[in-house]
């Protein structure tokens, strides 16, 4: 199945849920509302035609200024069909808020560390995450969420413009 027909297939599968779908550098990309996040993810894994069993990448983007929230970008792929799909969702947040969304560790085991990284670096909480401790930062880190845009800390020196 080529990317276009895959995208059409997914669009048909979740007709009312998908708010935006496009091909980005030949990867089918869909956007869903945060309340449908886990539902869409688990159906993409289970559906025979998509069968997306592995996580390729899972990260967050700070779009608080542009779109008013954190965008989760999840790229998943299938060893069986050798295709991949990107699923996006926008978790609304303003200022110092720490928004919450359901975890997808229930769908993919390997989402565990990816989500732990997002929790500590972006301050997006995952409801039902089995082990939300710090992964990269020290346990006694208390300077906020460093990957948020505009973050500054005590030992953080901004590179002067040359």
């Amino acid at each position: 199945m080529d990317s276009e027909s895959l995208l059409n297939h997914i669009n048909e599968l979740h007709k009312d849920i998908i708010i935006n779908s496009e091909l980005i550098t030949d990867v089918p990309t869909i956007e869903v509302k945060p309340e449908h996040w886990v539902e869409v993810c688990s159906s993409l894994k289970k559906d025979v035609k998509t069968n997306l069993h592995s996580i390729s990448n899972y990260g967050a983007v700070d779009y608080r200024e542009k779109l008013g929230g954190f965008q989760l970008v999840l790229t998943i792929f299938s060893h069986k069909h050798k295709h991949r799909v990107t699923v996006k969702t926008l978790v609304p947040a303003q200022g110092d808020e720490e928004p919450e969304i359901d975890t997808v560790t229930t769908v993919w085991l390997s989402a565990d560390w990816f989500e732990r990284e997002i929790i500590e670096l972006f301050g997006v909480k995952f409801k039902g995450h089995p082990d939300p401790r710090h992964l990269m930062l020290d346990d006694d880190w208390d300077e906020g969420f460093p990957l948020r845009r505009g973050w500054t800390g005590t030992d953080f020196i901004v590179k002067p413009e040359m």
């Binding site: 996580i55 390729s56 990448n57 990260g59 983007v61 790229t75 085991l109 390997s110 565990d112 560390w113």
Partner: peptide, 28 residues
């Protein structure tokens, strides 16, 4: 698998660079 997810906002610096590496999943 080593992957880069790069978002550009049209300036000379990337808006976000997410790096996925093989060891990250293999250690899990």
């Amino acid at each position: 698998e080593m992957a880069y997810h790069i978002i550009s906002d049209g300036t000379n610096k990337p808006y976000r660079v997410k790096i996925r590496t093989g060891s990250f999943c293999n250690l899990q």
